[in-house]
Amino acid sequence: MKADLPVIELEGVAKRYGAVEAVRDASFDLPQGACVALVGHNGAGKTTLMKLMLGLIRPSAGRLRVLGEDPAAGAAQARRRLGWLPESVTFNPALTGQEVLRFFARLKGEPAAAADALLERVGLIEAARRRIGGYSKGMRQRLGVAQALLGSPRAVLLDEPTTGLDPEVRQGLYDMLTELAGGGTTVLLSSHALEELEGRVERVVIMDHGRVVADGSLAELRRLARLPVRLRLALVGDAWPDWLRPDFAPHRLGNGLVELSCPPEAKMALLRQAAADPHVADLDLEPPTLDELYVHFLRSRDGVAP
Rank of each mutant, 00 (worst) to 15 (best):
K2E: 14
P6Q: 11
V7M: 10
E9F: 03
L10S: 03
A19P: 06
V23Y: 00
A26L: 08
S27K: 05
F28M: 06
P31Y: 09
P31K: 12
A34W: 05
A34Y: 06
V36N: 02
H41F: 13
G43A: 04
T47N: 10
M53E: 00
G55D: 02
L56R: 02
R58T: 12
R58S: 13
G62N: 06
G62I: 01
G68I: 07
D70Y: 08
P71K: 01
A75V: 14
Q77N: 13
E87C: 11
S88A: 13
V89S: 06
F91T: 01
Q98M: 14
V100H: 05
F103K: 00
R106N: 08
K108T: 07
P111L: 09
L118Q: 01
L119K: 02
R129S: 07
R130F: 01
R130A: 08
I132G: 04
Y135A: 07
Y135Q: 05
Y135C: 06
Q141I: 02
G144C: 08
V145P: 01
Q147I: 01
P153C: 13
R154T: 10
V156C: 03
D159H: 06
D159E: 05
V169M: 15
Q171L: 13
L173I: 07
V201L: 06
V201T: 07
R203W: 08
R203M: 09
R203V: 08
V205E: 02
G210C: 12
G210W: 00
V212W: 00
E220T: 13
E220L: 09
R222F: 10
R223V: 14
L224H: 14
R230E: 11
R232C: 07
A234D: 02
V236C: 12
W243P: 08
H251N: 12
H251I: 09
L257W: 02
V258R: 03
P264R: 09
A266Y: 10
A266T: 14
K267P: 11
A274C: 13
A274I: 09
D277N: 15
H279N: 14
D282M: 02
P288D: 04
E292W: 06
L298Q: 05
R301Q: 09
D302A: 15
